[in-house]
Amino acid sequence: MTTKQTTHLLTQLEKQVIISLQGDIPVIERPYLKLAQDIGITEKEFLKVMNDLNDQGLIRRFGATLKHQNSGFNANAMVAWIVDEKIAIETGKIMASFDEVSHCYRRNPVPGWDYNLYTMVHALDEKECYAIVKKISTTVNIDKYAILFSKKELKKTSMKYFV
């Protein structure tokens, strides 16, 4: 899918529900009742708007975000690939099919930076990352790539929209 999308015109209420859900929801029996009360609507209204947003695909993923340093994935690498444009789309799809690949995008190359496909690879250690990249490289028959290991997290947060 391309990243160009028709923008859904959001109502004030939808924006309020997005703001409620983009934080950390309370871990209590009825979290949506609490979130609804906080913005002055009923639980039923809140559930309806939330489910509509979800059905329209505006919520990309709903659930827990883990600290992956603390969940066993100690190495993560961004791999940038140079792929012939004629096969870039199909190659991106194949790369995305690997379980070890969490993110896969095509981006336009710019002067001085020829890479056009990007994958994020997560593994237990760097050695395993190299092996996974080798496996992907062999599968798609692309050998022009750079592995950029993450050395330090400078910021990681979730976006706060409409604030």
Partner: peptide
């Protein structure tokens, strides 16, 4: 955290 992750392009 537990919450929603929105598609920027769709909002």
């Amino acid at each position: 955290r537990i919450g929603g992750n929105f598609s920027p392009g769709k909002i």
